[in-house]
């Protein structure tokens, strides 16, 4: 490749990165623009007279704090429970033998390929019969059943040497101790990657949350924000403030655990 072509390719790449980041930049800066500044043409690339009025309005007129709390509880609860369930499953799949093991793992693989939305209607009816409409459990339980989580933990569990567990058995460890004292410490990094995956999955599981959580006080942040689009219609600054409030927590998680994000993506696919 010639030097000029290389330079042009680099330029295009950086422009694309800016294009991808632009909506986020526009949202954050827009949240500090007053209603008249937000609709002014030409628009200001950076608010010249930033205001926090949008945030004041947001906190006064919506339950955004409640929604954030709901999201944290639901995503956190889903993560904790899904990690326990999937880690046990990964252990059972790789370090134990039970009847129907191969069939069950086959089902896990098959269901990973089926769109979850196929089961939307029956799942809705099921939750209604369990009286879990407008209840956080209705969105936590399906996340615990994610086949990808079990698959991911099976991949990680395979890397734990069998010799380690055999040595533990000879030393007289109980089955529970083998799992908690020997197995868990070794798969810890894998659980970290899974936790990040489940947390962001649950945080963004919008469609299902929209169906199950219609009560304003029960909504998660994404569902809540989406209702503000019509409530704050044409008030773009206030809409952006709401969106920014939803962005910050997950952004913090992303920055703090970026390593695990990448690991979760790569382990789940090519190296599997």
């Amino acid at each position: 490749m010639t030097k000029g072509l290389k330079w042009a390719a680099d330029l295009v790449l950086y422009l694309c990165a800016l294009f991808f980041l632009f909506p986020i930049y526009w949202m954050i800066t827009g949240s500090f623009k007053s209603q008249s500044m937000a609709v002014q043409i030409p628009p200001e690339l950076f608010p010249s007279a930033p205001t926090t009025a949008n945030y004041t309005k947001l906190f006064a007129e919506s339950e955004v704090v409640r929604w954030l709390l709901n999201s944290v509880l639901i995503a956190g609860g889903s993560t904790l429970l899904a990690c326990i369930v999937a880690t046990m499953a990964g252990y059972a799949f790789t370090k134990h033998r039970f009847t129907g093991q191969a069939v069950l793992f086959g089902l896990v693989i098959v269901t990973m390929m089926i769109p979850r939305q196929l089961g939307l209607v029956p799942l809705f009816t099921l939750m209604k019969n369990l009286h879990l409409v407008n209840n956080g459990w209705s969105v936590i339980l399906p996340v615990m059943a994610l086949p990808f989580a079990a698959f991911l933990m099976k991949q990680f569990s395979q890397t734990v040497p069998n010799e380690l567990l055999e040595a533990g058995k000879i030393d007289g460890c109980s089955e529970i101790a083998l799992f908690t004292k020997l197995f868990l410490p070794v798969v810890k990094p894998g659980i970290g990657a899974l936790a990040i995956f489940v947390f962001s999955f649950s945080w963004n599981d919008y469609l299902w949350q929209l169906i199950m959580l219609s009560d304003e006080s029960k909504m998660t942040i994404n569902v809540g924000i989406s209702t503000l689009v019509s409530e704050f219609s044409a008030n773009y600054g206030a809409q952006m403030a709401a969106a920014t409030m939803g962005f910050i927590p997950i952004f913090v998680v992303f920055i703090a655990f970026q390593r695990y994000f990448v690991k979760g993506i790569t382990v789940g696919s090519v190296k599997g």
């Binding site: 949202m27 963004n204 952004f251």
Partner: peptide, 10 residues
């Protein structure tokens, strides 16, 4: 990471 809801609103 930013969730489709937030980006769509932007």
């Amino acid at each position: 990471v930013t969730s489709q809801v937030i980006l769509s609103i932007a």
